[in-house]
Nucleic acid binder design. Structure first.
Length: 332
DNA sequence: AACTCGTGGAT
DNA sequence: TATCCAAGAGT
């Protein structure tokens, strides 16, 4: 992993922080290319603090949970003003985007402060070692207590960063979700769930409610110069601060073509380009994409951007799907 | 305390 | 195809 310091090297707090922010609720495989591009574009804290927020949103586009990007930028400016990262838990915890997990992880990995950052890997490992059979999320406190106890071992306290990352690695490679490879586990003798034969059944989780459906319509308005109309979403909330194709609200019922086209950014010869389905955390979204060509975008609300440059814009994945459907229809 | 907030890969 | 899930934080 590109953010991990070689043995014996002193970790760069900026890179530790950046990687932990990107890894929140996000898989390692998804983060690696974003991390590489981000470090290349913003090589150090000063570069990030000096950047415009819009540039940060561009670099984050597609990674999801965009509040992380806004908080990252705000945090960079705060830390730059402080002259560097706080080296203690309370100081880190007070920064935007740094919660209990990330504060503990940065403190341990970058500064050698004892403590166990409890991510999903550690939850799984600790639930099994301690044989916590109560279901999440209620069992969270009991599992964290097990993790904290593991971190009190003198060897763990001597190398908190290595201990934390070793737990991550154990959870990622051996103590996995579906089929843990207990036969290869260096900890199997000390694992209460393995001794009881229930390792693969832990941690237990309460069932989650079904995701509701929502519906919207978005508009691809392209001019003769090869530009398309975009607009910026409100600064907070879902996809906050990101760009989008202009569109309707997302509601509980589908939009008829007539309903949708009444809300189009301009009167034009709109064609139905296709349908996009996208799963968010709390609902599934179905978008009808309409496309039209005009000579000039003119006075329509928003900003005209070259179609050829959309790859570098701050477009979330759902809007990239819409753009792809429109471009495909336009070409065909 | 309970909700909100993305995405793509694994199963 | 549908569901689950990941190095969680903010409100």
């Amino acid at each position: 992993m590109p953010w991990r310091a070689p043995p014996g090297a002193v970790p760069d707090p900026y890179r530790v922080w950046l990687s932990e922010a990107m890894l929140q609720q996000t898989t390692v495989a998804a983060v690696i290319p974003y991390y590489e591009r981000f470090v290349s574009r913003f090589p150090d804290l000063g570069a990030l603090a000096a950047a415009e927020e819009a540039a940060v949103m561009e670099a984050w586009a597609g990674l999801g949970y965009y509040a992380r990007a806004r908080n990252l930028h705000a945090c960079a400016r705060r830390v730059a003003a402080l002259g560097g990262f706080p080296r203690d838990l309370a100081g880190l915890r007070a920064l935007p985007g740094i919660g209990p997990y990330t504060a503990t992880a940065i403190a341990a990995i970058a500064f050698g402060v004892p403590g166990v950052p409890v991510d999903a890997n550690v939850v799984r490992v600790a639930a099994r070692i301690g044989a916590v059979t109560a279901p999440l999320p209620g069992a969270r406190a009991a599992i964290e207590a097990v993790a904290t106890r593991l971190g009190e071992d003198p060897a763990a306290r001597a190398r908190p960063g290595d201990f934390a990352q070793a737990l991550f690695d154990l959870g990622a490679t051996i103590c996995t979700q579906a089929a843990p490879t207990c036969v290869l586990c260096p900890w199997r003798e000390g694992c209460a769930a393995h001794r009881a034969g229930i390792a693969a059944d832990l941690p237990r989780k309460a069932p989650k409610p079904a995701r509701p459906s929502r519906f919207g319509a978005h508009f691809w308005l392209e001019d003769a110069a090869g530009q398309v109309l975009l607009r910026r979403r409100p600064a907070r909330g879902l996809l906050g601060g990101m760009l989008e194709l202009p569109g309707t609200a997302w509601r509980d019922a589908p939009w008829s073509a007539a309903e949708a086209l009444a809300l189009a950014p301009v009167a034009a010869s709109w064609r139905h380009a296709g349908t996009v389905r996208h799963g968010f955390t709390h609902f599934t979204l179905t978008i009808e994409v309409y496309a039209a060509r005009v000579a000039t975008i003119g006075e329509a609300a928003g900003m005209a951007r070259p179609v050829a440059g959309l790859g570098a814009e701050a477009l979330p994945s759902v809007m990239r799907k819409c753009a792809a459907v429109a471009v495909e229809e336009t070409a065909g």
